[in-house]
Design a protein around this nucleic acid. Structure first.
Lengths: 144, 144
DNA sequence: CTAAATTCCTACTGTTTTTGTATGATTATT
DNA sequence: AATAATCATACAAAAACAGTAGGAATTTAG
């Protein structure tokens, strides 16, 4: 039960954008180098973020990407769920179609439900702003 | 980020064994029918449980499987982790080998760590005995 | 107006994981 | 000896994962 690279890369990309919100648009190429991720792969991931209006793209030279909202308005769960899809640990919890016929008598479902809430709890607890702050604290420590 | 059928089937199998702890050994065939799972697939799963001494097998006619301990001595996490492997949401958290070089400056790791603890918290909170009790309560409600 | 830089689009591909099937050997009971 | 169960192992289809690749579209700078 792992989070895929796509979700993890998306989050790291969003942090990069948040860190540069005041400067020029951020190019995929640069993020790819800094984060050591395939640029072409990142392109695919960022396109999902663009379509969901999580980021805005600027084409052409001096182009790049920019957040559409303030960092505190993205919670980690929003980003992860957008890229990874529903984070429910079993598909029975996703929607009506996926619930199985034995659901009424299924006691394991209670575990999965509680697990789902726990996961949601963590992912929805932090925003990009939190991550940015942590990152800035880390950088300060390096300088000192 | 889903729990696989293997893990879920294993848990349902263990519940079946726990429910029949006082009776005869439980045959895979019967569990497979009751739980609507491929018997051959279940065999593979139960063999892992046998090797880990979570269950004991009795071969030959009237054979089957039996728990080696009392239901309250298995927590759900033990079973799931045995079958699914480490449940850490990212491999960086699994062992020394998998940690990446950028770990020191990686703020997303804090999220994954907290997520890992939350998952662990839920899975280690309940034992087979809890599930058995829930199942028995459910059955009573059906009878009444 | 042209060259360059960037995003955008979409198809393809190799690998791994998942979810089983299939076949038969082994063991124990009756 | 027949039968009923587990045990072992190989195989395979399908899906998911993790990219690669090529070029079209757009914008800027000179």
């Amino acid at each position: 039960m792992k989070i895929s690279t796509r979700g993890r890369y998306a989050l790291r990309l969003m942090i990069e954008l948040a860190l540069n919100q005041d400067g020029d648009p951020v190019r995929i190429k640069d993020v790819a180098v800094r984060q050591d991720i395939s640029a072409k792969y990142l392109e695919q991931i960022v396109s999902v973020l663009v379509k969901a209006r999580f980021v805005r793209s600027i084409r052409g030279p001096q182009g790049g990407y920019r957040l559409t909202r303030k960092p505190e308005e993205y919670c980690v769960g929003d980003i992860i769920r957008l890229i990874e899809g529903d984070m429910a640990p079993v598909s029975c919890l996703e929607d009506e179609e996926n619930r199985c016929p034995r659901q009424a008598g299924c006691v394991t479902l209670r575990i999965w439900k509680e697990l789902d809430e726990a996961i949601r709890g963590v992912l929805d607890k932090y925003t990009l702003a939190d991550l940015v702050q942590w990152q800035e604290e880390l950088s300060q420590n390096y300088v000192i």
